[in-house]
């Protein structure tokens, strides 16, 4: 089992190659649209849409949702939502070419799938809250921000990775 995975190691691109292409893509994105990439914005639109459909009055009264609700226009009608749809397709195609598509839970052999899923949920919730406070996630704030030398992008990047290294010790069992 271990040996098979070892052979699998090189199916991923060289990180410098991936980084180079990603850099070109960021340039292209800025050249075409004047803005950077993003990811969590699409999920925010999703949440706003759900809340707006389930409880419209609540959504309108909430100071945060109401920022994203416009009369006669769905919050899903948003650049980032379309981009996220593209991300899903692109990742699917890449996975399909290399045979990585499989319904599974990936976790360290030392922990159970259940533990992995519980931590994934906790991590997701924290990341969701954090991304809203910082107005963007690793791609929207840090990566696209750094590409135009935005101070906020650098601060966010340092905060994410700095904290990551600080707390890495406590989560080591999950990963190593």
């Amino acid at each position: 089992m271990k040996k098979k995975k070892q052979q699998n190691r090189h199916v991923y691109w060289n990180p410098y190659f991936g980084g180079f292409l990603l850099g070109l893509l960021i340039i292209l994105t800025f050249y075409l649209t004047g803005r950077g990439l993003g990811a969590s914005g699409a999920l925010k639109s999703g949440v706003v849409t759900i809340v707006d459909t389930v409880a419209p009055t609540h959504a309108e009264n909430n100071a945060y949702y109401s920022k994203f609700i416009k009369e006669g226009e769905s919050p899903m009608n948003n650049w980032l939502v379309f981009e996220a749809i593209g991300v899903l397709f692109g990742a699917f195609l890449s996975g399909a070419f290399t045979g990585r598509i499989k319904l599974r839970v990936q976790h360290s052999p030392k922990i159970t799938s259940k533990r992995r899923l519980i931590f994934a949920l906790i991590g997701g919730i924290l990341f969701g809250v954090g991304a809203q406070i910082a107005r963007g996630c690793t791609s929207g704030a840090a990566l696209s921000g750094m590409a135009v030398l935005a101070t906020g992008g650098f601060i966010t990047m340092l905060a994410i990775f700095g904290t990551g290294y600080l707390v890495a010790y406590f989560f080591r069992k999950n990963w190593i």
């Binding site: 990439l37 990811a39 969590s40 699409a42 999920l43 996220a84 991300v87 899903l88 397709f89 692109g90 990742a91 699917f92 996975g95 990585r100 598509i101 499989k102 319904l103 599974r104 839970v105 990936q106 799938s113 899923l117 931590f119 994934a120 949920l121 906790i122 991590g123 997701g124 919730i125 924290l126 990341f127 969701g128 809250v129 954090g130 991304a131 809203q132 406070i133 910082a134 107005r135 996630c137 690793t138 791609s139 601060i155 966010t156 990047m157 340092l158 905060a159 994410i160 990775f161 700095g162 904290t163 990551g164 600080l166 707390v167 890495a168 406590f170 989560f171 999950n174 990963w175």
Partner: peptide, 28 residues
Amino acid sequence: GGMIMGVGFLAGGFCPGTSLCAVAIGKI
């Protein structure tokens, strides 16, 4: 926000963009 995201990153192992990729290839 970055600090909360840092903890979330370590606990969950993804960030929003990469989690979308993981969804696309069937990672539960």
